[in-house]
Design a protein around this nucleic acid. Structure first.
Lengths: 166, 166
DNA sequence: CTTTAACTTAACCTTGACGTTGAGGTAAGT
DNA sequence: ACTTACCTCAACGTCAAGGTTAAGTTAAAG
């Protein structure tokens, strides 16, 4: 009944990385890791006896999601937190056992998650639309520039010829 | 001979808005306007005799571009500056007269403009792609959530029925 | 001509997101 | 046991992007 640590299994919950390695692997500083923890973006990792932090693959994945959101959206960390939190409700819901009594509570959580996700979705959709428009404008502009470039080349050729004909 | 303010003519270069009006019309604070000027994002507007700033429609349009880029990309102002600067090379090129001698110089400017625009374009394209992917993931997740919601509802109904049957 | 509203610069304050020491505790190799 | 690398927390520093007075100037209205 009791699940023992399977032999070579790489349980993503198994914490084994120290902060230095995480920093190196993910490209953020140790300070940033502690800072994110402090701000609730990363939940406190398990510690070894001496107090050293030990991170799991899950922690790293969460961090990568944070990085991605930050890069893409450029939002304040507080909002990023909301977003990743919403992502993880999924996992939380899945992992909870099911006393019948808690159904309504789970429902409430789910409702909340749906709200947040919808908000996110709309926000992203809006952004994608706006940026797509900007993208096509840039494309147009490039066309214009290249046309001008051709004109300039012709002008230059013409003026060279003229001078040669004098 | 002296051009008085033509009756209905709205030369976009004609400066006539004081900082307060600009702030109100664009929704940024006066401080922000001065700050952007200080940082080179807005070129120094013309001043009236007493030193009051007078903005033109062009200035406002530039500001709107800045706002838009900021909102969409969330980049630091330094980068936003580069972008709007690049946009304006276009106008500069258009407004320059054409001594034959300057063709090669204009060409160099144009090359530069194309480079910058291409960089911008690629950057935006990358972002749009990433965000589109994120968008579709969010869509999926919403589907999942809604399905779970249905399950929860059914469970709840079942448990109600059970209790009624005891 | 005075009052008031809008503007000026300058200086300091705030918040977010970390960077950078400093003083020590822990782990690992020799 | 010692050294060295890695870690702990705490505290102060910094930079961006403005916000917030303060003290004085100008424009406009009565």
């Amino acid at each position: 009944m009791a699940r023992k640590r399977q032999a070579p299994a790489i349980d993503p919950d198994e914490p084994y990385l120290q902060i230095g390695e995480v920093a190196e692997r993910t490209g953020v500083t140790q300070r940033t890791l502690r800072f994110y923890e402090e701000k609730g973006l990363l939940r406190p990792p398990t510690r070894m006896d001496g107090g050293f932090r030990l991170y799991s693959e899950n922690d790293i994945q969460r961090l990568e999601r944070i990085k991605r959101l930050k890069r893409l959206l450029g939002f304040p960390l507080a909002e990023i937190k909301e977003m990743v939190d919403a992502e993880e409700i999924k996992l939380q819901l899945r992992s909870e056992y099911r006393p019948e009594s808690a159904i309504s509570q789970k429902k409430a959580q789910l409702v909340r998650a749906i709200e947040v996700t919808e908000k996110q979705y709309n926000l992203i959709r809006q952004k994608v639309d706006d940026m797509a428009e900007m993208q096509s404008k840039l494309e147009e502009r490039l066309e214009t520039f290249r046309t001008w470039m051709e004109h300039l080349d012709k002008e230059a050729a013409a003026s060279r010829k003229e001078r040669a004909n004098v």
